[in-house]
Amino acid sequence: MSSGQGSISPADLDQAKVLLARVATVFDQRVVGQEALRTALVSSLISRGHILLESVPGLAKTTAAETLAAGVGGTFHRIQCTPDLMPNDIVGTQIYNYGTGSFTTQLGPVHANLVLLDEVNRSSAKTQSAMLEAMQERQTSIGGVEYPLPDPFMVLATQNPIEEEGTYVLPEAQMDRFLMKEVLTYPAANYEVEILERISSGRQSAPITVEPISLDDVRFLQRLVDDVYVDTSIKRYIVDVINTSRFSGPRPIQGLSNHIRVGASPRGSIALMRVAQALAIQAGRSFVIPDDVKAVRHSVLRHRLVRTFDALANNVQPEQLIDAIFDAVPTP
């Protein structure tokens, strides 16, 4: 298949549909509702990206990460971030063996297919940097030796936005490394009743009955995403959106600089295109349409816009700014 040319056969699309349906079935056995979360997690995985999950405690962030790992049959490690967590606790270290007089390397928990960084904003800046380096380079360096991370590799980081004591806020440059940022909200009342029903009946902890897909299947889906066709007009649309966030574009928004201090980088353009390609595969298409780009606008851009002090003081949400940007850019 030639990359990005939409040369995906109907048989491949059918196979992708079956594989994604199996992942969705596994997810539904453990997580009630949260369809947007499932879509974001799957999109990040098949786009070879990482995701940041933000919500108050108790909204199934950890459960969702564990379920995704169970659905793809990959190795899963959970790292509980604390202020005293050191980089070596994540990437690994060398241990001296007194019997042999030599060092042996012990790989850290980052060496897994899916890694959950629970409450990432509780770890120190040095530890955050070590983890984000592993995310970017997809390898760790221990004692001068480089150790590649498993393929596929995905980080799911969580943070609690309401508690600031003992936290280290992720800088904007590090936030930009995440392909998506998903903000979870409270479940609807009927979903919460279903959660209680599952807990009381034991269904929530019952063994998962659906056969998970394999890591080879994940790599197959990732290759399909690479091959999804993106027309030049769609690429131009994405670039116009990103440029509008930088106070230029085809129709600059007057007064936008009062709310945005720094717009999205070219990494934002790439992320919009990649996640739109993943969304197209999940919709059973071999090409991207403008609605794919619009559907992922909040998850891809909400953590890439640096708001001004006035916007923060007036509680202007990034989603409002993103909607204003998309409203100003003509749809192809």
Rank of each mutant, 00 (worst) to 15 (best):
residue 147 Y to M: 13
residue 147 Y to N: 14
residue 147 Y to T: 14
residue 148 P to L: 08
residue 148 P to M: 14
residue 148 P to K: 09
residue 149 L to S: 11
residue 149 L to D: 03
residue 150 P to G: 09
residue 150 P to Y: 11
residue 151 D to E: 15
residue 151 D to H: 08
residue 153 F to C: 10
residue 157 A to L: 02
residue 158 T to N: 01
residue 160 N to K: 04
residue 160 N to L: 10
residue 161 P to F: 06
residue 162 I to V: 14
residue 163 E to G: 10
residue 163 E to K: 13
residue 166 G to L: 10
residue 167 T to V: 15
residue 170 L to H: 02
residue 171 P to C: 08
residue 171 P to D: 05
residue 171 P to L: 11
residue 171 P to I: 14
residue 172 E to M: 06
residue 172 E to N: 11
residue 172 E to H: 05
residue 172 E to I: 07
residue 173 A to D: 02
residue 175 M to R: 15
residue 176 D to C: 06
residue 179 L to R: 04
residue 181 K to E: 01
residue 181 K to Q: 08
residue 182 E to W: 09
residue 182 E to Q: 12
residue 183 V to D: 12
residue 184 L to W: 01
residue 185 T to W: 02
residue 185 T to P: 00
residue 185 T to F: 04
residue 186 Y to S: 09
residue 187 P to E: 03
residue 187 P to A: 09
residue 190 N to P: 00
residue 191 Y to N: 14
residue 195 I to T: 10
residue 198 R to T: 11
residue 199 I to H: 08
residue 199 I to E: 06
residue 200 S to L: 12
residue 201 S to E: 02
residue 202 G to N: 04
residue 205 S to K: 13
residue 206 A to F: 00
residue 208 I to S: 03
residue 216 D to G: 12
residue 216 D to R: 14
residue 216 D to Q: 12
residue 216 D to W: 04
residue 217 D to V: 14
residue 217 D to S: 09
residue 218 V to G: 01
residue 218 V to L: 01
residue 218 V to E: 00
residue 218 V to Q: 00
residue 220 F to A: 09
residue 223 R to A: 01
residue 225 V to C: 04
residue 228 V to N: 00
residue 229 Y to F: 14
residue 233 S to Q: 11
residue 235 K to V: 13
residue 237 Y to H: 08
residue 237 Y to E: 06
residue 238 I to N: 03
residue 240 D to F: 04
residue 241 V to H: 00
residue 243 N to C: 15
residue 244 T to L: 08
residue 245 S to R: 06
residue 248 S to C: 08
residue 251 R to G: 04
residue 252 P to H: 03
residue 253 I to R: 11
residue 253 I to G: 07
residue 256 L to Q: 04
residue 257 S to T: 13
residue 258 N to E: 14
residue 259 H to A: 15
residue 260 I to M: 02
residue 262 V to R: 13
residue 263 G to I: 10
residue 263 G to F: 01
residue 266 P to R: 10
residue 267 R to F: 01
residue 268 G to H: 00
residue 268 G to I: 09
residue 268 G to A: 06
residue 269 S to L: 13
residue 270 I to K: 02
residue 270 I to A: 12
residue 270 I to S: 07
residue 271 A to R: 05
residue 274 R to D: 05
residue 274 R to T: 07
residue 275 V to I: 15
residue 279 L to H: 08
residue 279 L to R: 13
residue 280 A to S: 08
residue 280 A to Q: 01
residue 280 A to Y: 00
